[in-house]
Amino acid sequence: MTDINKLTDIASQVRRDILRMVTQAGCGHPGGSMSSTDFITALYFDIMKQSPEGWSRSGKGQDMFILSAGHMSPLLYSVLARSGYFPTSELGTFRHLGSRLQGHPSTEFGLPGVYMPSGSLGQGLSVACGAALGKRLDGEDNTVYVLCGDGESEEGQIWEAAMFAAHHKVDNLIAMTDWNHQQIDGTVDSVIGLGDLESKWKAFGWECICADGHDMKAILDTFAAAKSLSRHGKPVMILFRTVMGKGVDFMEGTNEWHGKAPSPEQCEKALAQIKETLGDY
């Protein structure tokens, strides 16, 4: 039986990590990192079969997570550090010269837990398809997970990959969209509206589920449903309805915090709203 309170506590600490990393760096992308925090926490601390022990980029014998929306790097680094891939103290080096924690995820400096660089958008879904096909060829029963942004879904390559995955029946793939409706220039609807996203994925031949991306119980139920839908000839997409900047009242629901760091004073105000559960790094 999964302890929902425990996952909620971890998510709380992950949000603190994100805010502190971005504030210390003086730049970065807190908004999307915080909208995806709850379900990515669930993924790493409950859903995925993964372990830092003997980790390698081959992903052999492991479930794999590919972050397509690379600007959510603070989130990825926090869950990796909290999972034991590297010391949490290293989170303090985010975006510093010589750090393994590059502004966007990199494999150039050998950071454990990162399979592929990302940052230039729209590419991770294709990468995940390839990784999933590799597992299929090797007869592995592990699953490949990938996270895209909703704004990122304006990239044409996302839909190339959507067609590819359906055509090749890549059914050991579970994709997620952080559906927070915000991007740099404004709301997604005002920039380039995605229309009926759920119908689009279904029309592209995918199983598609919508869920509340901040309700931990709903998140776990949704992953369970996604897993039961997988391996039946279709790739699976979960559209997580989320709020950009979730967890801090003055950051929530606005594109203003997509790619801006809080000032130290703002960070203090934000941290006052989020419980320290595992100890700050």
């Binding site: 794999m64 294709s126 990468v127 090797d138 990959a161 590819f164």
Partner: peptide, 18 residues
């Protein structure tokens, strides 16, 4: 198919497993 961008990154993903 006629989707070269996807092809390049699918190839990259395939290479991970060796």
């Amino acid at each position: 198919g006629i989707a070269e961008a996807d092809m390049i990154d699918v190839a990259a993903g395939l290479s991970l497993s060796g």
